[in-house]
Design a protein around this nucleic acid. Structure first.
Lengths: 219, 219
DNA sequence: GAACGATATGGCACTGTGTGCCAAGTAGCC
DNA sequence: GGCTACTTGGCACACAGTGCCATATCGTTC
């Protein structure tokens, strides 16, 4: 994603993009090595040789730079959703868009972007202020996803709650599945796919107020 | 909830509780009148005549005092869930516990705790840092609720994802329903109940990959 | 290549949040 | 009343975040 910039823009734009990338990379490296709270903005900007003031021209704050990479995946997801076949049911479109993004990773037991992704995820989960900011980003992403589902289905999201419900259901299942999967230390995308499918099966069973598949309702 | 304290404790404990309540009340009054960002900790402690240092002995930070009342409702909810009949299905128990807590409010068009609750909810929704902190609290509440569901169902929440799924499903439906309901300015609990029921119906339809009740699946 | 306008950067001073330390004050107990 | 345990207030500090302005750099035109 980052290597597609600058092909047809000026030096000024290219320098800005390089500064932004350098800040995001330096921040991530420091956060993963020292922890979020123990890393200061002064340390990040020193690593890139720009001023604090410049930092705040690229990022609204310390949290935003920490979540910068995760937000790139959100863009990937929205693009994937927008290009799903128009006649696909909403939940199917969401699930398949998610699978597309996941396939961007390879199985990379101890290297590459997948490993870094897992390490950043653990950092975020373990840092309350980042977890909070990440959740708020997720809410905003849900709103945009719901708008896309509403567009695909030709309904008004302000009047019809089904887009919002489908998106929040999708995120709920994904979050429970990813919490379960991330207990391992390995970027095993096939394993995640299996957990996700099983979680959807459990959810369908549960929504009919049953606890196991095959059980009759009992209230 | 707050008036049950101090009956059998010493003066020191009673003074601490009064200070804590005074800070929470002063903070809420200032946040609702001036906004969260425009209110400083110095203003809150000046209103109660204690020091900044004392403030930080009662609350971990500015966000925590803003969410103090909301977290009291979380305790109410957990208590209500714990006392639901043991043989109730998980989703039914969650829904009925929620209805119990909601009934603590009356329909109070322009006064009382219900009105204050709505105003605080709008403040939180409109303040990114509070929204983020609130969402993180909700995650922690979900974890405790899942533990309670797991206890009721006699399963290990570390091995069985159904407690987590049922809780996150419940929260998802409630959040979509409350977003829809809170567009009004009135504490209409009957209206909320109707929206919640309708949202559950839509969710059940959707989880079977249908968009309307009665529609055959089409993928 | 120089000039000029537009834009980016760095430095500074400032506000506000949050925290550790320690002296002074207060509550509880005997 | 004395002593102990606990609470409070003041202070100095670190850090995040921001507005303002002088200086530097890039892009465009000639």
């Amino acid at each position: 994603m980052r290597d597609t910039v600058g092909a047809a823009t000026g030096l000024r734009e290219r320098k800005k993009e390089r500064t932004r990338e350098a800040l995001a990379d330096a921040a991530q490296e420091l956060f993963l090595r020292k922890g979020y709270d123990a890393t200061t903005i002064d340390e990040i900007v020193a690593a890139v040789e720009v001023s604090r003031r410049t930092f705040f021209r690229y990022f609204a704050g310390k949290e935003e730079v920490a979540l910068a990479r995760a937000m790139e995946f959100e863009q990937l997801f929205l693009s994937a959703l927008a290009t799903r076949p128009a006649d696909e049911a909403p939940l199917t479109a969401l699930r398949r868009a998610g699978a597309e993004v996941l396939s961007e990773f390879g199985d990379e037991p101890d290297g590459g972007t997948g490993h870094e992704f897992l390490r950043m995820r653990r950092l975020i989960e373990g840092t309350p202020v980042l977890m909070a900011a990440s959740l708020r980003n997720a809410i905003e992403l849900e709103r945009r996803m719901a708008a896309e589902i509403a567009r695909r289905e030709g309904v008004d999201p302000e009047r019809d709650r089904r887009p919002a419900l489908s998106v929040t259901l999708y995120h709920s299942v994904m979050r429970v599945a990813m919490d379960e999967w991330a207990e391992d230390e390995v970027m095993d995308t096939a394993g995640l796919s299996r957990i996700v499918e099983a979680a959807w099966d459990d959810m369908a069973t549960m929504l009919n107020d049953r606890w196991t598949a095959g059980e009759l309702g009992r209230d």
